[in-house]
């Protein structure tokens, strides 16, 4: 699997996944919304990370699950793009 490396594309994919699975219809939610206010609890976070593995092809190690990286979809996408550039693939 070829890993996606563009943070904007990754952020859009993550937002779409969150809208489909966690966020209530009609809620204002974009790549800069704080994750904690958008229904992203620990359970949802794991679902999101497994989605990254499955679809984007990047495994995010626990050491990267820091407050800074988990501020918003944009910050998480930056972290994933960085890992993709460093060949941190899920396979």
């Amino acid at each position: 699997m070829t890993s996606e490396k563009d943070p904007n594309t990754i952020a859009a994919q993550l937002c779409q996944f969150a809208r489909t699975n966690f966020v209530v219809e009609g809620t204002n939610f974009d790549e800069n919304s704080p994750l904690a206010h958008a229904g992203i609890d620990s359970f949802a976070l794991v679902e999101l990370l497994l989605y990254c593995e499955r679809v984007i092809g990047v495994r995010v190690p626990d050491s990267h699950l820091t407050g800074n990286n988990l501020t918003s979809m944009a910050t998480l996408a930056n972290c994933i793009a960085e890992l993709a550039r460093n060949n941190h693939s899920s396979t």
Binding site: L45, L65, G67
Partner: peptide, 12 residues
Amino acid sequence: CQQLVGGFRRSH
């Protein structure tokens, strides 16, 4: 909690 589990796994 922030220090141990990044703040996202309070329940854990």
